[in-house]
Design a protein around this nucleic acid. Structure first.
Length: 548
RNA sequence: UGGGGUAUCGCCAAGUGGUAAGGCACUGGUUUCUGGUACCAGCAUUCCCAGGUUCGAAUCCUGGUACCCCAGCCA
């Protein structure tokens, strides 16, 4: 597609390119829309053209102002700005109506009194041609009069429609006298009660493109069958420009669903915490999860555009955000499953602090203070009483380095009455700060937090919402059966004190654990809530799996 | 059984008659105060199948096969 446009530009066939992103304001944008946004805005940007935002608002029954606002916020957050004002298909209702009258005068459209059921019957099937409606040959004057009275609201919803007169026997069902206008006595979020009839998608989209001077009307494959109709209208009507429709395959991601119906169901049944729940594949959900605009754009770039059916591995999305945050997220230490460690050769009043870099490779991120005291927390995962081979962490009699600090040795395991491990007694080798110990190698490094200075944090460990990589594989089997019961696990952790004053949406790498983002709703009034965006790669987990 | 599409590595995806890019994943290894990162190496004698044209075919031709979309007064 990029090549096609480049050729057009280089051959002088096209001087500039104008695209548009045309969402219907009836739901939240999701990862699939991000792809479309990236394609439309990105192409325009690349070729020095423009991209419009146009709400395709021809169905007042399903649309809401709230969606209009949310969609604009999502697009801007992704880093794009549309050319000119926000546009609406409803801006063109007057022109569209005039063009409908034009078609009627030309004998190319008629008012049909058939009921919805009759229209379906008359349309025929995939293999049988349709039959003409008995109202197909009304006079121009009668059609004009009826159409005007439809507009004025003289008829009930469903009583009449305006149809194009094309070919009831066309092998392409879209050409069997498609519906141009239907009666809807509904309040419209933009035009109020001015209209009692609303144009269909087919009668609106191409002409809106033409009015705006769109050169490339990019859409998904399911509209390919509509292209002949798109062109038919442009041929019949005195439109000011000639846009061209090009289709590409929509993007799917495994372990997710993106149909608006299913997403809405998840929200309505409180399976998730709203449209922006961090497990939702919506743009606002991904944002709250901690994805960056750049990572989403990179993901789109990595996956590309083609016409083949595709299901992108969610591992690619994970890669996109990890590689962004690896470079751009400051580091911090946070213990998720605390185990107390008493450093027996450190005095109780010892209060040392290390100055450590905010990021191992980004000097511009400065330094942070890491207090070190007699009692610290480590993660339970980092200790094993009977360690298997290749376990480089702490174990009785073994040494490990405290990240950014000293090497310690585990001298004693303190157990409670039930045999559960309550604490560890360890001793510090004070000759190991910033240097390796003499005569031996300590391979393991673990993260830790001063018990005295650490701050409590709520950590929300998110995972895929579904266990099956194709949750909606079965046509109508319930996709909710594939829900992951562990898609959210909330733990109380302890973080280093530098995290005490984070801003909502601040992103960190919790060293050795993963990337986390301060929740933009819950992180208020001093409360600290972090969402796990994605874990770090864990090759120890792989080794363990192999060993067992 | 009508019309419109698509088939290249486990997943994306370049390639448009000159002898199969790249990314993700995976597998080894090096470096490392993150079992992270980085770096190095490996990973399609073959492009849905079968014929054909050609000096030469993923690319052209013929015939198959599989999968996706279309019968809303949704978009």
């Amino acid at each position: 597609m990029r090549n096609q446009i480049r050729d057009e530009i280089e051959s002088g066939q096209a001087k500039t390119i104008v695209t548009r992103f045309p969402p219907e304001p009836n739901g939240f944008l999701h990862i699939g829309h991000a792809k479309s946004i990236w394609v439309n805005f990105g192409l325009a940007e690349q070729f020095g053209g423009r991209c419009h935002l146009r709400f395709d608002d021809t169905n007042p029954a399903k649309e809401e102002q709230a969606y209009i606002d949310a969609i604009q916020e999502d697009i801007r957050w992704l880093g794009y700005e549309w050319s000119g004002a926000v546009r609406f298909a409803s801006d063109y209702f007057d022109q569209l109506y005039a063009w409908a009258q034009h078609l009627v005068r030309e004998g190319k459209a008629y008012v049909d009194d058939l009921s919805p059921e009759e229209i379906r019957e008359y349309r025929g099937t995939l293999t049988e041609p349709g039959r003409p409606s008995p109202y197909r040959d009304r006079s121009v004057d009668e059609n004009l009069d009826l159409l005007e009275r439809m507009r004025l609201g003289e008829f009930d919803e469903g009583a009449k429609v305006l149809r194009a007169r094309i070919d009831m026997a066309a092998p392409n069902i879209n050409l069997r006298d498609p519906i141009l206008y239907r009666i809807r006595h509904a309040h419209h979020h933009q035009t109020g009660d001015a209209w009692k009839i609303y144009p269909s998608y087919d009668f609106t989209h191409g002409q809106s493109d033409a009015i705006e001077g769109i050169t490339h009307s990019l859409c998904t494959l399911e509209f390919e069958d509509h292209r002949p109709l798109y062109e038919w209208f442009l041929d019949q009507l005195p439109v000011p420009s000639r846009p061209r429709q090009t289709e590409f395959a929509r993007m799917n991601v495994n372990y997710t669903v993106t149909s608006k119906r299913k997403l809405k169901l998840l929200v309505d049944q409180n399976v998730v915490d709203g449209w922006d729940d961090p497990r939702m594949p919506t743009i606002s959900g991904l944002r709250r999860r901690g994805y960056t605009p750049a990572s989403l754009r990179k993901f789109c770039d990595m996956t590309g555009v083609s016409r083949a059916a595709n299901v992108v591995d969610i591992a690619m999305l994970h890669f996109a955000i990890r590689s962004d945050l690896e470079d751009n997220a400051p580091r911090a230490m946070c213990v998720l499953d605390p185990l107390k460690v008493v450093l027996t050769n450190v005095p109780a009043d010892h209060d040392e602090a290390f100055e450590v870099p905010g990021h191992p490779a980004r000097e511009d991120m400065g330094m942070r203070r890491l207090p070190f005291t007699r009692e610290i927390w480590i993660d339970r995962d980092d200790f094993m009483e009977e360690p298997p081979k290749k376990f480089f962490r702490l174990a009785p009699g073994k040494e490990v380095r405290l990240r950014n600090g000293y090497v310690i040795r585990c001298d004693e395991v303190i157990k409670g009455g039930g045999g559960e491990i309550e604490a560890l007694h360890c001793s510090v080798d004070f000759d190991t700060l910033g240097k390796n110990p003499e005569g031996r190698k300590v391979k393991g490094v673990i993260h830790w937090v001063s018990a005295e200075h650490g701050v409590p944090v709520e950590v929300r460990l998110y995972d895929n919402l579904f266990l099956d990589e194709a949750p909606d594989r079965d046509k109508d089997a319930d996709f909710l059966e594939h829900l992951n019961p562990e898609s959210l696990i909330v733990v109380e952790g302890i973080a280093e004190p530098a995290l005490a004053k984070v801003e909502p949406e601040a992103r960190y790498q919790f060293e050795r654990v993963g990337y986390f983002c301060a929740d933009r709703h819950a992180c208020r009034d001093g409360k600290l809530v972090f969402n796990r965006t994605v874990g770090l790669k864990d090759s120890w987990a792989k080794i363990q799996k192999k060993q067992s």
